[in-house]
Each structure stands twice: as structure tokens, then as C-alpha cells.
């Protein structure tokens, strides 16, 4: 097992990445898709306003990018902190 200080720094870095990802996760679905839809109804993507599009399609694409970006970032962190498998 990695030494204590390294794994603490690793855990802190992990929590930071998770927090940023969770903010994006919330912003695209609950933010653009629900809460901000009335305010942004003037902006359109093709035939849909931006809130409608994020609620029906857009947030799913963002979720996908988020998970793969998180997996890649964590693989890098694992190596930097010497805790990879």
C-alpha cells in the first residue's frame, strides 16, 4: 500500500476532481435542463430551445463526456501518486 501522505494527497485530489465533475453534472441537467429553461428560452439549437434540448438530449452527451474524462483523469492521478494497479 502507498504511504499515508501520498494516499491523503491522492484522496484530496480525487475529491477535487469529483467536486468539479458534480458541478458540471448539476449545471447541465438541473441547471440548463430545468431551472434556467425559462430564462434562456430565447436561445435555440435547431428547432428546440436550449433548455428543452439539454433536458431531452444534451445532458446525456455531457454525462458521457464527464465519465470518460473522469476515468482518464483518475488514471493519470493513480500513476502520479503511485497507487495504480
Amino acid at each position: 500500500m502507498a504511504d499515508k501522505t501520498s494516499s491523503n494527497a491522492y484522496w484530496a485530489a480525487n475529491i477535487r476532481v469529483i467536486t468539479i465533475s458534480m458541478i458540471i453534472w448539476f449545471a447541465c441537467s438541473f441547471g440548463l435542463g430545468i431551472l434556467l429553461r425559462p430564462a434562456l428560452s430565447g436561445i435555440h439549437i435547431g428547432g428546440a430551445d436550449i433548455g428543452f434540448w439539454f433536458a431531452q438530449n444534451g445532458s446525456i452527451y455531457v454525462f458521457l463526456v464527464l465519465i470518460f474524462a473522469y476515468a482518464a483523469k483518475m488514471n493519470k492521478l493513480d500513476k502520479e501518486h503511485g497507487v495504480e494497479e
Binding site: 469529483i18 453534472w25 441537467s29 435542463g33 438530449n57 445532458s59 454525462f63 476515468a71
Partner: peptide
């Protein structure tokens, strides 16, 4: 009913990260 689209996919972000 977009709730189903966002709800049933957004959970995977929580699974992967948390």
C-alpha cells in the same frame, strides 16, 4: 417527462464517480 431521460442516465455519473 424529460425527467426519465435525465434521471435514468444521470445516475451513471454518480455510479462512476461515487
Amino acid at each position: 417527462n424529460s425527467v426519465f431521460l435525465m434521471g435514468w442516465t444521470g445516475g451513471y455519473v454518480l455510479l462512476a464517480l461515487l
